[in-house]
Each structure stands twice: as structure tokens, then as C-alpha cells.
Simulated assay, not measured.
Amino acid sequence: MKNVKQIASIGLVALFIGSSFSCEAKPKLKTTIDPETTIIAQAITDDKKPEKNVVKIALLLDTSNSMDGLINQAKAQLWDIVNKFSYVKCGNETRPELQIALYEYGNSSLEAKDGYIRQVINFSGDLDEISEKLFSLTTNGGDEYCGEVINTSIKDLDWGKNPDNLKLIFIAGNEPFNQGKLDYKDATVNAKEKGIVVNTIFCGNYNQGVNSYWQNGAQLTNGEYIAIDHNKRVIHIDTPYDEVIIKLNKKLNTTYVSYGSLGNSKMELQSVQDEKASEMEEAVMVKRAVSKSSRLYNNASWDLVDASKNKNFSVSKIDKKQLPKELQSKSTKEIEDYIKSKKQERVTIQQQIKEANTKREAFITKNQKEGSKGELENAMLSAIVKQAATKNYSWDK
């Protein structure tokens, strides 16, 4: 009977520890002894709160002359990736944050002393700013040094110390992977030491990518090697719900209440990125609108509605000169009521966008031909889902 109780104790402890801390920083443990079973067990102490889990993705894009198609796919499909992550959860049911960094390499307009490499944006969760930086990319002929850009992103970016963070590099290009002074094998060793998975996307023939070391570059960190047709035009399916979502997006924008030194410029950036998406294609604007209705589109640094979700937020702490003119003469209570009404309005609109998008996705699934999705989108999402599973991530949609 005593042995049975010992086994049960071990099982319960293992189950508790395993199920409670998936996708989180490892908790501090304290050794205790069960006087009944004399089995040493480990109980969790509360003296250190686990870090919030973050998905970190660095995109390393070749911007040499031949890569216009790749850049266009990246612009169009940023929102597919964001929308995918809006539904991700850890094994303990928490929702991780998403941060994206962007580098360009292989562009002759960049500095030769820097290896023709430029950090376009550091890790950021500001989706409007990420979109802005993607749309700023232009192509120009140059030398593509894959090992060097991988190593630069590992060295310069803050990847965090939480071992359960999902840390991914996606590097895309079409020249041999072994060019440059820094050996790609050394770069991938550095990545593996930091728990970073390197995924390689060769823009061209599959076997050509294998022969030019792109596959080997991925294999060294257990990443995915994918070959894509970067010049393939993405076929978007028009649906009866597109115009509904676009109209709702315009209403959504009216729920933002700017404040602070960034307020006006950030609100303008939001509008400009809507226009950029619309200029590409109506479907891209629809996907962006869906992203704006998700938990990942958070603008607490300049929007009072998002800022008010913070438990330490207080209207009284804000200089009224940094509020919109129509609010500067209002009392604190009136401003609070205004924010509350905008918050309720936003929740309603976002829910309407989600409901329309559910119908839109069902329509697309029914009418989409095989292989009509974007090449870059397919490559990244398949790798992300596979590698997220190793960290106990899952999707509820």
C-alpha cells in the first residue's frame, strides 16, 4: 500500500509541474519531504513570477535586384502571420506576445563595411511600425552574405533569457548560402546555443537551394528548408464579406483616442498603413483589418482606450495638453466616461469584424484552389506550427 501511495505522489507532482508551466519560464522549486511516504517532492515557491512568454521572429530578407517579388509577398502576408498568432496559446492557456524584427541584406545601397546588412526594425510588437518598415524596403543589386546577417541578428537583437520562448529566424534569398567571410555553420552554431531555430527559404528551384547549402543551413538548428517561387502572384479570393470588413475598419479607426507626444503621428501612421494595404489589394486591407481586431494590435503607448486596460492607468496623471482638443476642457470623470464609451464601441466593432471574417474564411475554404495561397505565407506558417509544437503551443482555431 505504501508503494502505491509513493507512486501516486510522484505522479501528482509530475502532473502538476508539467501541466502548470508549459510555455513559461521554469519556476523556482523547493524540496520538501512527505512524512507519510518519505518521498522527496518539489513544491513551487511564489518568490519569483515566471516571465511572460514571447514569440520572437526575425525576418532576414534579401533586397538585391531580383527580390522584388519576395518583398511584395512579405508586405501582403505580414497580416496572415499576425492573424495566425492571434489564436496561439501555451499549454497553460496563456496567450504569448508576438515580436517581429526585420533585417535587409544583399543591397548594394547599404554599407559595405556592414556586410551590406541593415537592421530595419528591432524586435517590436507595434504592427503599424512593422508594416511601415516593410513598405519602405526597395531592392538594389549587391552581395548576399547569409552567415553574416544571421550572426548580426543573433548578436544585436535581445532574444531574451526565457528558455521557453519561441525564437525563430526566417532568412530568404536566392544566392549561395555560403557566401561571405563568416561561415554560415559558425552562425548557426551561435543560433543553436541561444535556442534559436534558423529556417531557410530559397527563392528558386528546390534542388538548386539544396546544392547551394540552404537546406544544410536549416538542418544545423533543426529548422525547415523551403523553396518558393517568390515571383508567383498571390491569388486573393474576393468574398461578399470584404466590403463589410473594410467599412467596419473605418468605424474601428474612430474609436482611437490619441494622447501624448506620439499620439497624432501614430494615428496618422495607422491611416497611412491602411492606405498602403489597400493600394496593394483589397484582400490585404481585409487581412489587416482582421489583425486590428485581434489582441495583438495594441497601441497603449498612444491610444487611451488600449492604455486604460493597464491596471496602473489613471486619467488624472495625463497632462490635458497632451489630449485631443475636444477633451482638454473636460473633467476627469467626463474623460473616463468618454474612454469607456469608445472601449465599448471598439469591442462591438471588433466582434463584428471577427464574425464577418469567420464567414469570409469559410467562403475562401470552399472556393480556394489548391496551391493558391502565397508561397511565403505557406513556408512560414508550416514551419511556425511545427516548431511551436515543441514548446507546447497550440491553436484554438
Score class of each variant (00 low, 15 high):
Ser261Ile: 12
Ile353Met: 04
Ser294Trp: 06
Lys354Met: 12
Gln350Ile: 03
Glu268Arg: 10
Gln352Met: 12
Asn299Tyr: 15
Val244Ser: 07
Asn231His: 03
Gln352Val: 09
Val284Phe: 03
Ile226Leu: 05
Asn310Asp: 15
Ser341Phe: 12
Ala307Thr: 08
Glu275Trp: 03
Glu268Gly: 01
Tyr225Val: 04
Tyr338Leu: 13
Met267Asn: 10
Lys266Asn: 12
Glu224Lys: 11
Ser261Met: 13
Glu282Thr: 13
Lys325Gln: 15
Gln350Cys: 15
Lys276Ser: 06
Ile246Arg: 03
Ile318Cys: 04
Tyr259Leu: 00
Pro324Lys: 05
Val257Phe: 01
Gly260Arg: 02
Arg233Ile: 14
Tyr225Asn: 02
Ala277Met: 01
Lys340Gly: 06
Ser278Ile: 10
Ser294Phe: 06
Glu282Val: 09
His236Lys: 08
Val284Arg: 01
Ala277Arg: 00
Ile339Gly: 01
Thr348Phe: 14
Ser261Ala: 11
Lys251Asn: 12
Tyr259Asn: 01
Tyr297Met: 07
Ser258Gln: 09
Val257Glu: 04
Lys333Ser: 14
His236Arg: 03
Lys251Trp: 01
Leu296Phe: 10
Lys342Phe: 09
Gly263His: 02
Gly263Asp: 02
Lys330Met: 15
Ile237Cys: 02
Val347Thr: 14
Tyr259Thr: 00
Pro324Gly: 08
Lys330Ile: 06
Asp238Gln: 07
Lys325Val: 15
Lys320Phe: 14
Ser278Glu: 12
Ile237Val: 07
Asp337Glu: 15
Arg346Cys: 05
Ser271Cys: 02
Ile339Trp: 00
Val290Phe: 04
Ala300Thr: 11
Ile353Asn: 04
Glu279Ile: 11
Leu252Thr: 00
Ile237Ser: 03
Asn310Phe: 15
Lys330Phe: 13
Ser258Cys: 05
Ala227Gln: 00
Asn299Gln: 14
Val286Glu: 04
Asn264Gln: 13
Pro324Asn: 09
Lys321Thr: 13
Glu275Cys: 01
Ser291Gly: 08
Asn310Pro: 13
Gln350Tyr: 00
Val315Ser: 06
Ser278Phe: 13
Lys354His: 11
Val315Asp: 05
Leu323Ser: 09
Lys250Ser: 12
Gln322Ile: 11
Ala283Cys: 07
Val290Gly: 04
Lys340Trp: 00
Pro240Gly: 05
Glu336Lys: 04
Ser258Val: 05
Lys232Pro: 01
